Structure formats: C-alpha cells, structure tokens
Simulated assay, not measured.
Amino acid sequence: MIPVRVDDPDDPRLADYRALEALAHRSDPHRFVAESELVVERLLRSDYGVASVLTTASHCERLAPILAARPEVPVYVGEQAVLRQAVGQNFHRGVAACGLRPAGLRWNDMSPETDRQPVLEDTLLEDVAGRPAYTVLLAQGLADPANVGAIVRAARAFGVDLLLLDRAGADPLSRRAIRAAAGNVFAQATLGVGDLVGAVQRLRGAGATVLAATPGPRARPLGAVVRPARLVILVGSEGQGLPAALRAVGDDEVAIPMRPGVDSLGVAAATAILLYALAGAHGPGL
C-alpha cells in the first residue's frame, strides 16, 4: 500500500467525496461514504468492496497495518485544509472511505440490476430458514437513519442472524446510519426487502415463530414469552407502529411492560430490549 499525495482539492480522484454533506440527504445506489477512524477500520476489515480511502497523514499512519491488508484500495493523503475544500465541509474526523454497496443494500436503485434483488432475497432467506435455530429481525417503516443505525448496532450486539429492512425506509448505508451503527453494519447480515409480508410468510412457513412488537391490548408481556428456536421479531415505526398486514402474519404479539403514563419507548431502545430478552441472552458469551 503506497499512499498517493493529493494537493489539489479539485483532483478528479476525489470525486466520490465531493459535497459530502449532500450525501446525508440522498443515497447513491452504488456507493456510500463512511467516516471516522473506527468506522473506516471496520469497513476495511469487512468483506465490503472499497473504492478508496481519503485521509490525513496521521490517520494514515495509524491505519497502516489495516491498509496494508487491502493493497487493492487506493489511499489518498492530503493536508487538512485541502481535504476540507475537497469535501465541502470541515474534515475534522480526518479519514473517510468510499465503499461499494452490496446488491442487497442498494437503496433508491432503479437500474436493471435490481432484477437480481428477488434472487438474492430467496438465497438469504432459504439459508436462514434451513438452520435449526436463528433470530431474524424485521424493521418496517423507519424513516430516521439514526434509528436504523442504532437497530443495526443492537442486532449485531445481540446475535441477530439476519436483519431485514424495509426498502421504503431509511438507508442503512447513509452517513447518519453508519455513524449511529458505529460501523457495525459492515459485519451484520442485512438485507433490504420490498415484500415484507412475503418474507415473513416464507420464514413462518419454514417453521419460524413470528412475534410482532406492539403495545396493543392483545400483546403478551415480554417476560411471559418463551423463546422458540426459530424466531422472527417484527418492529415498526414509532408513529404508525406495525401495519395490520404484518401483524396478521404474526403468531403472537409482545409488549415491554412499562409504568402507567408511559405509552412507548423509542423504537431503537425498545428493539434493543427485545433482542436482549429474546436473542442475546441465549447467545455465546452473554
């Protein structure tokens, strides 16, 4: 790995990092940008493709062993002032990387390549459904990338085998989501799904028990639920909750008991509690 010095903020090799702030509001269907030393380190250690790394000299030195293990990744090094001009904002984190999206996480992609999405869904769902025990988490309708990132982080922490995300919701590879997930999205098996009901029905038909998280009157308290070997947990948006179509394909409803006067927790906090109680406590090391 031989870093390439860049002194011109208009260098065409830095095109992926232009107007970095704008990427907080839109998703590129093929690439994404990850920031901070910890997050970039986790990206480089993952199986994700990486188009390039942009960094200051000091961060490059600290990341040298990891960069050496990925010799195919171009590394561009520049002064803080040059990088700040190139990205269009303060480059205080000191390092960023342009990653290549896996097919299952191509948000806002209307290209012919999206035809492969159903095939990918079939492959991943069949793989999980064939296991004797697993935990699948499905999150529907989450508009806030910070919530999506926090849920990715909880899924990784508590041993979720597959995280299914609503493709109509926030992008898990947006800047805010990656930051909230602390880079754990690169290690967590995650798939964007269009037909949420169909995905749940397939897992249920293969022997999974489906629990819908809802504060509704039919819900059983979390402490009364006995964890099955094959488990699918459904969580919905804070405002609307799970739609009737998803609740209808569930086997049971579950709620977290709370003091009177508190109607709900934020979706990220509630999901972490559900996963700890139903998934993580049964995993190795927990």
Rank of each mutant, 00 (worst) to 15 (best):
L164S: 10
V87F: 00
L234Q: 01
A57F: 08
R5D: 09
L54F: 12
R230S: 08
S36N: 14
T214N: 09
A86F: 05
G239Y: 10
V193H: 02
P284E: 13
L275G: 01
A139G: 11
R218M: 13
W107Q: 14
F32N: 01
P12D: 01
C60I: 09
F186Q: 00
Q85A: 13
A199W: 01
D28Q: 07
G49P: 05
P284F: 04
L125I: 14
A268C: 03
R42F: 04
W107K: 15
V226L: 11
T114H: 13
L265T: 01
Y134G: 05
A57D: 15
L63M: 13
G198W: 07
Q140S: 15
S58D: 13
F186Y: 12
R13N: 03
V136T: 07
E113P: 05
A187K: 13
G99E: 07
A64G: 06
Y17I: 07
D47H: 11
E79N: 11
P243C: 08
P118W: 13
L105I: 10
G99A: 08
A255G: 12
V33S: 04
V225P: 04
V40N: 07
N108G: 11
R167V: 14
V128Q: 04
S174K: 02
M258W: 09
Q80D: 15
D161C: 02
A69W: 01
V193F: 00
I256R: 10
D251A: 00
A269R: 12
A212S: 14
S264R: 03
A255Q: 14
L196N: 02
L246T: 02
N147P: 04
L265G: 06
E79I: 09
R218K: 15
R153Y: 12
L38H: 15
Y17K: 00
P172A: 05
T190W: 02
A281S: 14
D251Y: 01
L125K: 09
G223D: 13
A245Y: 02
R204N: 00
G94P: 02
D263Y: 01
D47L: 01
A208G: 12
S52R: 06
W107N: 04
G49A: 09
Q85P: 09
I66H: 13
S111Y: 05
A24I: 15
A277T: 14
A170E: 12
V249K: 05
P228R: 04
S264D: 03
A281D: 03
E113V: 14
G266M: 08
S46Y: 06
R31T: 15
A255E: 14
E121S: 10
R62P: 05
A19Y: 11
R93D: 08
F158M: 14
L191V: 09
L63H: 09
T123Q: 14
L125E: 07
L105W: 02
T135P: 08
E72G: 12
V226T: 15
A219Y: 00
V267E: 06
D144I: 07
A177E: 00
A277I: 08
H282R: 12
Q188A: 00
P145M: 07
C60L: 06
G216P: 06
P217E: 01
